[in-house]
């Protein structure tokens, strides 16, 4: 209980800081829209093609956006050595990590909810046909990105090439989650009938989330107490 209260305090603090400066929100949002725009030059967006890999495109954008968001997560604590004060406080490493991961999740999910209609307009898709299932799948994929990303943000925060190192470590490890969420999003975006292997991908995504959330919560203290 205390752990959740501490995590909530950290998440609220991170979100308040972010909304005050809007540093990562603004840059990530404009970056995402630019990428969405660039895709239309890379190929001719016919409806058939979008039905085939719309989910993949969308998650490419979200993966880029996610790396920008999580990069700021622990970097935000660097000026004035705030991380020391947080680690010295009664909050455990696990609750610090959880709070920060939740803040990243909220930011990223918000950005996704803005990108989705933009994507729909640019590529002429009626994406809301199975809205709740789609949002559920997006939330699962976003948690995978926010959870592993925030953990790696803690892992790389003191490095010189942090901005480069983080995505390089993050993307290969996220492949199972990205693969399944792309498959699921693809289907739900265009309102196609659910394929028989639907539940396999869903189970994979949920399993990935459980596994990596457990690992991160368990190892957060090891990383934060130096």
């Amino acid at each position: 209980m205390t752990m959740l209260r501490h995590a909530a305090a950290i998440a609220a603090k991170d979100l308040r800081s972010e909304f005050r400066t809007k540093e990562s929100i603004n840059s990530t949002l404009s970056f995402s829209v630019v990428i969405l725009l660039l895709f239309s030059f890379a190929f001719d967006p016919s409806p058939d093609m979008i039905a085939e890999f719309g989910g993949g495109l969308l998650w490419m954008v979200f993966a880029f956006a996610g790396a920008l968001i999580v990069n700021r997560s622990f970097a935000r604590e660097l000026p004035n050595d705030c991380i020391d004060v947080l680690v010295a406080s009664p909050a455990s490493g696990a609750s610090l990590f959880l709070g920060k991961a939740v803040a990243c999740f909220v930011l990223l999910f918000g950005i996704e909810c803005i990108c989705l209609p933009v994507f729909g307009i640019f590529y002429n898709i009626t994406w809301w046909r199975s809205l709740w299932a789609l949002l559920g799948v997006l939330a699962l994929g976003t948690w995978a990105l926010a959870c592993v990303g925030t953990f790696f943000s803690a892992l790389t925060v003191n490095l010189r090439l942090r901005e480069l190192m983080l995505p390089m470590l993050l993307y290969p490890m996220l492949i199972p989650a990205l693969l399944s969420v792309m498959m699921l999003t693809n289907t739900l975006l265009t309102g196609q009938a659910l394929p028989p292997d639907f539940s396999v991908w869903l189970r994979l995504l949920v399993g990935f989330n459980i596994m990596f959330t457990t690992l991160s919560v368990y190892l957060a203290e090891t990383i934060l107490v130096r």
Binding site: V148, F151, L155, T156, N158, L159, R160, L161, M165, M168, L169, P172, M173, L174, I175, P176, L204, G207, F208, M211, F212, L215, L219, T222, I223, R226
Partner: peptide, 30 residues
């Protein structure tokens, strides 16, 4: 790559050990 970026040997050992565990888990799921 992560190893080569960390100077303090103890910090390097700890962070890369954690990364190795994450990597193994991910590789198994993949």
């Amino acid at each position: 790559m992560l190893r080569s970026a960390i100077d303090d040997p103890t910090e390097r050992a700890k962070n890369s050990a954690v990364l190795s565990i994450f990597g193994s888990a991910s590789v198994a799921v993949t």
